[in-house]
Simulated scan of single mutants.
Amino acid sequence: MSTDPWETLRAATRARVGLGRAGDGLSTPENLRLAAAHAQARDAVHAPLDADAVVAALGERAGPVVHSRVADRTEYLQRPDLGRRLADDHGLERGDHDLAVVIADGLSARAVHDHAVAVVDALLPRLEGWSVAPVVVAQQARVALGDDIAAALGARMVLVLIGERPGMSSPDSLGAYLTFDPRPGRLDSERNCVSNIRPPDGLTYDGAAEVLAALMTESFRLGLSGVGLKDTGTALPPVAG
């Protein structure tokens, strides 16, 4: 049996606790682990989205690939405003849909590659009777780009699945942002977010789909999203064993 009092806590979290020290600093192994985590986070921010692979994984559910008004990744990081607006040559066709689903690279294409299609797979069967537009894949995208996309598609609600800002232990975290009556100019306070979708260390696909389906159903009933819409569920996601 270990005599390290921090071992139990370290086994229960990915946070860096009880690291020990060498003199006034971290030990060499911990410094190397920290540097590796930092490199993973930087790689996640700069890695490009493989839109063709996402479209292939979506199969017949896939719609077009669109772009924001950003020219390249450098501009994406420097000009968030351009990442929120849809390029003029988007090719989207207006229809009559309850829901538009947008898969967006955001700040972690890795999160999209690993988790986005699985969330779609778990969610859509829970939306029986909904009219869902073909899933749009968006490059160099911020969350608010979904408002432009949904408005172009004629959708009453948009769900944006997007790579979240990488942390030092979570370079692959996917976020889901829900907005009722999406249109350009919507505020962040008018959205709901389900965050940290990344099994086995975060929320499971089924867990995220259950919360999202409940929020979306209530959003339609109330005719709103954001701070006025609350997740009233009491079930917590299972603890990874």
Rank of each mutant, 00 (worst) to 15 (best):
G207M: 06
A176Y: 01
G95M: 09
L124H: 10
I197S: 02
A53I: 09
P182D: 07
G223Y: 04
A39Q: 12
G154W: 01
G91H: 08
L77M: 12
V119A: 12
V17I: 15
V132M: 14
V143T: 09
S2Y: 01
P134D: 11
A138S: 14
R14N: 08
T217C: 11
R42I: 14
P64F: 10
V194W: 03
D181H: 08
G18T: 01
M168G: 05
R186H: 00
V136R: 08
D96P: 09
R126Q: 14
D206M: 08
A133W: 05
L229S: 07
V120E: 09
R73K: 14
R73A: 10
A62L: 11
T8W: 11
D114K: 15
G241H: 13
G129N: 08
L236R: 13
L153R: 09
E30G: 08
E93R: 15
R183M: 09
F180N: 01
L9R: 13
C193G: 01
G129C: 08
G23I: 01
M157K: 06
C193L: 03
A62H: 11
D43V: 14
S225Y: 03
P199G: 13
G207W: 08
A240H: 11
Y76I: 04
G241A: 15
A213Y: 04
V117N: 08
G241T: 13
R21Q: 00
V132K: 13
D4Y: 03
A155I: 03
L49C: 02
M1R: 10
G106S: 02
G175A: 04
V101Y: 02
D148G: 07
D50R: 13
L222M: 14
A138I: 05
G106P: 00
V132G: 07
R14I: 03
A116L: 09
V70G: 02
E93K: 14
R110Y: 06
P80L: 09
V70E: 03
M168T: 09
R21Y: 00
L34I: 05
G18Q: 05
F220E: 03
Q140R: 11
G241Y: 03
T179G: 06
R165T: 01
D98E: 14
V120I: 12
P182K: 12
D201A: 14
A141K: 06
Q140I: 00
V211H: 09
C193S: 04
T28Y: 00
G223C: 07
A51P: 07
P171D: 07
I162M: 07
K230Q: 15
T8M: 10
E30Y: 05
V112F: 10
G167M: 05
H113S: 15
S68R: 03
A176S: 13
P48L: 10
A62S: 12
D121F: 13
P184C: 02
S195V: 01
T232H: 14
A208M: 12
H90C: 02
L229F: 11
E75D: 12
R14V: 06
Y205K: 14
G146M: 00
G20W: 01
A62R: 15
Q140M: 11
L92Y: 10
Q78H: 12
L49S: 01
A71E: 06
N31E: 02
D81W: 11
L123T: 06
